[in-house]
Design a protein around this nucleic acid. Structure first.
Lengths: 225, 225
DNA sequence: TCCGAATGAATGAATCATCATTCGTTTCAG
DNA sequence: CTGAAACGAATGATGATTCATTCATTCGGA
């Protein structure tokens, strides 16, 4: 069940007419970057291959030397984004002994990568559905791996007695959506605060108690229903 | 600054070649419903006018009697969805005296409408960017109104001493994203639990304390930077 | 009451523009 | 020189939009 152990997924089945591995990598990176920019700005369907070619400074034909079709480009573009999350988070969270600090660092890292790739993140949301099912599943898988990083931090905090024994799955999704919201609701948050502030304010809300003691008492009967 | 006081936004500037208001309403509803279904399933760009016509049981030409172009159809489709939220939430939250109960009811209502319109909700996320700026802004405005409903509930709970004086804006977005997540991550949650359970588990995580007393003590120095 | 305009809805084949993709030609490194 | 790499004009498909036509009414005058 375990899949490839973390090689920046590279080609993932996309075929190229050029042999030279190094050249393929270079060209693909060049083209995918242009594509991310264009897809992010205009959306997948609205951007043409020739847009991408122009942006990347190559000819239309060249793109077809390195990709089978337009969907391949989208696929590698989205993969690129998700891989960058999967790379950044663990490296930033590091291995500080304190689980609470690791958790905080992970959330900060997650939000910072997203901040650095707002358009690309939104792209992943908007266009994943345009991919064939196999590929969509691969993307889900990636996302799942990212979630697992966060879940592990939470679970460590619980084991260390720093978090209550809450619903790990739900809290994980809470955090993930919180991070994604920075991109999805950029129009609302941008300008109002920095990513750093956003994370700090968010964590304060998520980790501390919202209900007052009286609120708790009143809530008890509600839940029993 | 205040905009139209809640008339199910109806036409919002979309022009029709037919005069009869009642007929226009009927036909548009018919076409928009078909469109929501198709756009939701296949996405905006991938569905053709003729798809929609077929689904709605009318001719291609007819659609152009009631809409200026394809974008008009998308616009009214998204508007329809957001309006349904704006309608359902207050009517379900009712006016129960207890603010906590109203809050709970509002969140449940929000999630239930979304559950009833998963495809449509995802549609709004995916395709809002395909609209012209003016229209995109109108959509944002709608979303803002919905958020305000939730924010009001929260603020009532605080005033009643049931919630701590937390960051209203952030908690509101927390809740909103939580509700949207039910649609955006449907593939993950569906089958695992019902909407009702989802909301209850979610509220438990959001409202109660996550940090243990010891966690709080350790966290203090962290926040001080 | 009845009949031939006149109006406005509805149709769907034809038009027209826009791309994705191909492929014959050109470049250039070795 | 030779072959791989790059180019970009030409091709073909697709799909939004138009429009000439049909169909169903309403209406006014005899």
């Amino acid at each position: 069940m375990a899949v490839n152990p973390r090689t920046r997924t590279a080609s993932a089945g996309v075929k190229s007419k050029v042999e030279d591995r190094a050249l393929v990598d270079r060209r693909r990176r060049q083209i995918v970057n242009a594509a991310i920019e264009r897809f992010g700005k205009r959306g997948y369907h609205a951007t043409t291959i020739s847009d991408i070619a122009q942006r990347a400074g190559v000819s239309v034909g060249l793109i077809y030397q390195y990709f089978g079709d337009k969907e391949d480009v989208l696929f590698l573009a989205i993969l690129e984004v998700l891989d960058s999350y999967l790379e950044q988070i663990p490296s930033s969270a590091g291995s500080s002994g304190d689980p609470l600090e690791r958790f905080r660092a992970a959330v900060h890292a997650y939000c910072r990568v997203i901040d650095a790739n707002v358009d690309a993140t939104v792209l992943a949301y908007r266009e994943t559905k345009s991919l064939r099912k196999v590929r969509r599943n691969l993307i889900k898988q990636k996302e799942h791996e990212t979630n697992a990083l966060i879940a592990a931090c939470i679970s460590d905090c619980i084991r260390a007695g720093l978090f209550e024994k809450i619903d790990i799955e739900l809290l994980t999704y809470q955090i993930v959506m919180f991070a994604h919201a920075w991109a999805l609701k950029a129009w609302h948050f941008r300008g109002k605060m920095s990513v750093g502030q956003y994370v700090d304010r968010g964590l304060a809300v998520m980790l501390n108690r919202v209900l007052t003691p009286r609120g708790q008492r009143e809530r008890a009967p509600l839940r029993a229903r």
